[in-house]
Design a protein around this nucleic acid. Structure first.
Lengths: 149, 149
DNA sequence: ATAATAACAGTAATTATTATCAATTTTTAT
DNA sequence: ATAAAAATTGATAATAATTACTGTTATTAT
């Protein structure tokens, strides 16, 4: 694999991702990089994200919300996708290669790895949901009180 | 969830998927259903695939090759994605909900499930690869022989 | 049988992403 | 330091997958 020629834009994209713990999409990255490089084009962002992912310097995450997300941290870990706010968060679990073994026993072919995403409700949405339930049941209590009165 | 009004097109799509073990994309499904319904439109295929998936009558698979695949079998099992021929095959492994438990211990939020895809080289591509290697080394032997002669 | 409405075909619009290309930036060789 | 070579860029066009819109047709309930 041939070395890449340096570019300020690519460096900025890499630094930007390294400084975040969320997992922005290409257009989010674009809108932020634009603050430092007002003339950068979206194509440049896409091209560099692909190059960096290809070389394993960042991770490309396809979690099924049909927009790729990118992760500046390449240490092995998994991801969680919130079905309410669509956010992607890290889940610090070591690589479970035992999963590959289980699959190998059932499959005729070469299993090289797996992609695993968890889904559900993130902490923030969970808290918000509970608050809404509370205020909803309070409303109901008031309604009942009015009817009874 | 309201009941759906019957439609021959939707029935045909469901039957088509039930009869296959591969996991076709919307446009593949479209091209086949067209043999029986020459006037069906691609939008109808997409709409019905979404409806059926929403109701759990089929599965929508997003395996990162940016075209959704569909599976007529909803019994719990996993999938394998061949990075060579991009085919998606079934992997009859029971649902490993132990994975969710491991994740729950490391995550503040509600984990409802996971999506897990295996990747590597499928049986067919693996065989083909070996054949090519063989014929390649034979070619080399011949070349060496010519040079030595 | 008829009215209400869900689903349809056809088509336009949207969204994410990739490709093209002349101009610029970075690297290499002098 | 300078010029030639090569990679990268910005701008824009093109593609691919999917969704939205609209007038017509099929299904269901009365």
């Amino acid at each position: 694999m041939k070395a890449l020629k340096y570019s300020r834009q690519r460096e900025a994209i890499k630094d930007f991702l390294a400084a975040r713990t969320d997992h922005p999409t290409a257009d989010i990255i674009y809108s932020h990089i634009r603050e430092d490089f007002p003339n950068i084009s979206l194509g440049t962002v896409y091209r560099n994200l692909s190059l960096l992912a290809e070389r394993g310097e960042i991770l490309k995450l396809s979690c099924g919300d049909n927009a790729d997300h990118f992760d500046g941290c390449t240490a092995p870990h998994y991801h969680f996708f919130c079905r309410k706010c669509q956010s992607v968060s890290d889940l610090e679990l070591p690589d479970m290669d035992i999963i590959n073994l289980a699959a190998s026993r059932k499959f005729c072919g070469k299993i090289e790895g797996h992609t695993l995403y968890f889904y559900g409700i993130c902490k923030a949405c969970n808290t918000r949901e509970k608050l809404e339930e509370e205020s909803f049941s309070q409303t109901n209590e008031n309604e009942n009180f009015s009817q009874n009165a």
